[in-house]
């Protein structure tokens, strides 16, 4: 286990190094002058003096390699620079947005898990009835409906038409419902099909027949044998989806004015706020590696064979 953790840590360092280097180079190669974008934010043309002064202030006139050296040092010491736009430390700005994104990601995951389990289990048990057909249609819609369309549809029905839920913003539990459903529903219906297929395959396995022969109750076989085995492929998918959600769902956060990482990074990219973009990339690399590490651990908990290996 210690070796496993050390390997993962080494991977983390490598990932952060390569990703931050690549981000730095791509950002410098991409078009866009942060100084111009800041000064012309209100579509009033800036003067040359203003541009020169701001470029100087932001350190954009320095040699690129010097900037890169500074950046790599900063990346590993946790000093991720200061935002060009807000003039506040990037680490502080990102940390301020993690709770909102985590809240939405967790709620999205709950919706996704609930839909996956409810639809997956019920359609595997009633594998030939109307419920299965509904599950199939839902999966088709879930995988093909774009989240921005689903989001607006939900706002229209639940906020504008019936006034049951707030249309945007963060605050109460009610604010969380529509964004979480938008985030989790589509993937949940797709994963439900995976779970169903997986469960149907296991229901025909010999160890299930053996368990029945030994006189175990149907519920016990379903929960402790079939479901547990069928869960393995789903855990990886859920983990990957959760990692994506933790990085901030750009579309859902924009539609619902959710003040998380996704919305923040869109604005940072728009304004070419290099320190923020670079800090975000390090944070998300870390989150990705961490979540995959957690998935591996959970995998081992579910599957004793992996622990033996």
């Amino acid at each position: 286990m210690i070796r496993f953790c050390l390997e993962r840590f080494a991977q983390l360092v490598m990932v952060i190094f390569f990703v931050s280097t690549l981000t730095f180079l791509l950002l410098r190669a991409a078009p866009g002058d942060p100084a111009y974008l800041l000064l012309a934010a209100h579509d009033v043309p800036p003067s040359e003096e203003a541009l020169v002064a701001l470029r100087e202030e932001l350190g954009l006139t320095e040699n690129v390699w010097k900037q890169y050296g500074q950046w790599i040092t900063d990346a590993f010491t946790g000093q991720w620079g200061t935002s060009y736009v807000s003039k506040k430390p990037v680490a502080e700005e990102l940390a301020g947005r993690i709770p909102a994104t985590f809240e939405l990601a967790a709620a999205g995951l709950i919706v996704m898990v609930m839909v996956t389990f409810a639809l997956g289990i019920s359609t595997s048990i009633y594998s030939k009835g109307w419920l299965n057909r509904i599950g199939k249609i839902m999966a088709l819609f879930g995988s093909s409906i774009p989240s921005f369309w689903l989001g607006f549809l939900l706002i229209y029905f639940f906020s504008v038409r019936y006034g049951w839920l707030p249309s945007m913003g963060r605050g109460t539990l009610q604010h969380l419902v529509l964004p979480a459903v938008t985030l989790g529903l589509g993937l949940g219906t797709v994963y439900a099909r995976v779970l169903r297929t997986s469960m149907l395959g296991i229901l025909n396995q010999q160890f299930v027949t053996a368990a029945k022969a030994r006189g175990f109750s149907g519920r016990r076989i379903l929960v402790f044998q079939v479901f547990k085995h069928a869960l393995l492929p789903i855990v990886t998918m859920l983990g990957t989806s959760f990692a994506f959600m933790l990085c901030g769902s750009i579309i859902v956060e924009s539609i619902f004015s959710w003040p998380g990482l996704g919305r923040y990074i869109v604005e940072a990219i728009h304004m070419r706020d290099y320190p923020v973009i670079q800090g975000y990339v390090i944070l998300t690399s870390f989150l990705f590696v961490f979540v995959h590490f957690a998935v591996d651990v959970i995998y081992a908990l579910f599957d004793p064979r992996l622990r033996v290996r």
Partner: peptide, 9 residues
């Protein structure tokens, strides 16, 4: 049993 489980879920 299956039905019971699905209904609870």
């Amino acid at each position: 049993t299956h039905r019971e489980f699905t209904v609870v879920l």
